[in-house]
Nucleic acid binder design. Structure first.
Lengths: 138, 138
DNA sequence: ACTATCTATAGACAAATTGTCAATAGTTAA
DNA sequence: TTAACTATTGACAATTTGTCTATAGATAGT
């Protein structure tokens, strides 16, 4: 997974990189991933946190508060619903459930991702055309 | 291109969407695209602005100040260099040129994009597996 | 001469997103 | 009772974006 840079590159950061700060992921992924996981089965934050590993998140690094925050934010958008789960031992869990709107939104997000893939593809092939192979000069 | 939402979806925005604001692009694309264009040939902001169309940007909507700002930011990171071009008529142009560091950075960015594509692919296939086809219940 | 339009760049500020840290709490095992 | 794991929340700083405004030379039209 991309995050975690700070390589060679003049330290004269303008915008876009306070010194020492990790470069952020190039793509906003958290919410669609959470929604996708919830589309499959109800779950709670702590559990989702670990499930995110399957989408390439480094759970060691990902701050749990990001997951919880995104869940709450999605709830305020009515993409998910939650309630306290009393039937479990340990500290109380807030169980999340995707809503119909959430499913619909997920679908739109999937379309976005498909479009995004095409856009990325365009850049990648352009790069390889201009860099590689035969011609060096126009 | 994705931006421009504001569809059906409870207006109770939590975080992530002030009412009325356009949803932003799901992916940060501007800088790599600019760098890629400059990897091919020197150019100036106004020209780059229109060239971005080939990567799917809607030039009608894209605010020029974003392009100029990103160029300046990349310059402060030494990814590009610039100087005023006197040999052109009309208002002065700042001609940009990619630096060796810029080329190296672009290469890393390309790797990022390739990884990102894989990540997106993972989500997309997961989505289609869980949604489509045969099994509905686990 | 005046005005609109196109080329060109820059600055400021508000809004949104992300990163980081600390606080709180129940449970279990040493 | 202390450490470690499960679980969630809140606050705040840093960063990134979006938007609007200002400035200015050149050109074409009236």
């Amino acid at each position: 997974m991309p995050p975690g840079y700070g390589r060679g590159m003049g330290r004269g950061a303008g915008r876009g990189m306070g010194q020492g700060r990790r470069r952020r992921r190039i793509i906003n992924f958290l919410q669609p991933c959470l929604l996708l996981l919830l589309a499959r089965e109800n779950s709670h934050g702590y559990n989702l946190l670990t499930d995110l590993e399957s989408f390439g998140f480094d759970v060691e690094i990902l701050d749990p508060s990001l997951v919880y925050r995104n869940l709450r934010d999605m709830e305020s958008l009515s993409l998910v619903q939650s309630e306290w789960d009393d039937e479990s031992q340990g500290p109380q869990r807030r169980m999340y459930q995707i809503t119909p709107q959430g499913r619909q939104f997920l679908q739109e997000w999937i379309h976005d991702l498909e479009r995004t893939q095409l856009d990325i593809q365009k850049v990648l092939t352009t790069y390889h055309n201009w860099t590689n192979s035969s011609e060096k000069e126009k």
